[in-house]
Design a protein around this nucleic acid. Structure first.
Lengths: 251, 251
DNA sequence: TTAAACCATTACGTAACGTCAATGTCAACT
DNA sequence: AGTTGACATTGACGTTACGTAATGGTTTAA
């Protein structure tokens, strides 16, 4: 079957400008030019255009598509398989976003509470996306640590970057708190700095910070044995020390 | 919680450039500017950004997003519901595309044969409804993608207030048209008033009105059995009558 | 205190087309 | 035979939504 530019455009649901542009780029040249100068596309071009649109749908730049299709070791069959898995991944992400909207609706009704982090779940994040695609399975096999990290980050609904920032902050908080505790004065400058770090740390999980809540949560550290155990691992009595320091900090 | 530009960008998975650009457009201004000139974003801005990204995900131009959010009768709840249905539609389309790839793989193996038409299934941003898909496609081909797409977006984001006004207008249009039709003269004052009401009615869906488009759409009422049926329910021959009246109205 | 990390503005660059404008070609009516 | 209207061509400039310096002030960590 042969197609003029308009026929092909309508078939594929794109504009004639797009086809001329693809010709200009050398991405999709017509099979031949008829005597009157019209572009005539054939079967091969139809199939190539389909390939191009698959890639375009996945956000691959046209120049890159050109390179991919031009590569001598290009395997159409393998490409299709990879399209398939990419599209399935895209659907997964879309499901995330749908869940996000559903939850946002509930949150607006006051039925649930949403963290700021959650609010941006499901939007395509370029960095994560790129990393995943570039390294894929190989990186995962190589770096065991990172896979643990990213799974943690997933639980907390954070990006890897955010998670590592949290880890850094946690370490700093613990260190500061330890030294301040050894000095023994909840009003000391260092203890107050620990409070500030703790506030920052809390803000990773909270949308709205308030002094009352800050005091409340540190009191809970003392009352709830699970939290007490965590903070007392730094030093016995540390949970109570933090509570006292925060009381001063929030005064 | 307050965020600097970098914090918010990381939270939302976008670039700081994007946030500055949105500020420049007046689409998302910071809550305040700190003494050192830094942009500071608050809770309200976080939520607004989420809204913006929902729209952006659906391909709505930033200027349009701005208008939508600025509309005094903007209904956040209704907008979320419309996001949801739009995303579900997108997932349906994605499923189509996935089916396309799967079939293409089979076709490459020689297991099935694919028509050229089938090869481009799933790429178009078609309407969800099966019935509407066919007519939507026709309208697209005839009157351009933009007017159809934007009319959909407009319908989806209509507030209850707007909707009831539309209903009222529809009733008035139908009544006027009916009486004018019974009088039989497309040039009559009443028929011309019907045209004006019809124009008003169209402007509920169109961003830009033109005489050509007005004539075009009434011609479509005659050509398209679905629309003909609708207008002929008022009175047989009514679709053609409206077209004739509009031709005079736009002259 | 000195580097690193962030912030600002200004301004030019870009991808993937959209949108004229000017002109040529072709099939179909009148 | 002439006109109309749909469709084709090649420029060439416009647009959207940012990316990417360049240049310089500010805050934080070592």
């Amino acid at each position: 079957m042969e197609y003029t530019i308009n026929k092909l455009a309508k078939l594929a649901g794109i504009s004639t400008r797009t086809l001329r542009y693809y010709d200009e780029l050398g991405l999709l040249s017509p099979a031949r030019i008829s005597s009157n100068g019209y572009r005539i596309y054939g079967q091969k071009e139809v199939d190539r255009l389909q390939q191009i649109l698959f890639y375009r749908e996945l956000g691959v730049p046209l120049q890159k598509i050109k390179n991919i299709l031009a590569a001598e070791d290009f395997d159409a069959q393998a490409a299709l398989e990879s399209h398939l898995s990419a599209l399935l991944a895209k659907r997964k992400q879309l499901d995330l976003l749908i869940a996000n909207v559903e939850k946002t609706i509930k949150a607006a009704r006051g039925e649930v509470i949403m963290s700021d982090q959650e609010k941006f779940k499901g939007f395509l994040q370029k960095l994560v996306d790129d990393n995943e695609r570039q390294y894929g399975k190989e990186a995962r096999a190589k770096y065991g640590d990172e896979s643990v990290d990213s799974s943690n980050a997933k639980v907390l609904n954070m990006s890897k970057e955010q998670y590592s920032e949290l880890e850094k902050l946690t370490a700093e908080l613990n260190e500061t708190l330890k030294v301040a505790f050894e000095q023994g004065d909840p009003a000391s400058e260092l203890a107050q700095k620990a409070c500030e770090l703790h506030k920052k740390w809390l803000c990773f999980f909270w949308n709205e910070y308030s002094k009352e809540a800050h005091i409340g949560v540190t009191q809970m550290y003392v009352d709830d044995p699970r939290f007490t155990a965590y903070y007392d691992k730094i030093a016995v009595g540390c949970a109570a020390f933090l509570r006292d320091a925060v009381k001063i900090y929030c005064k």
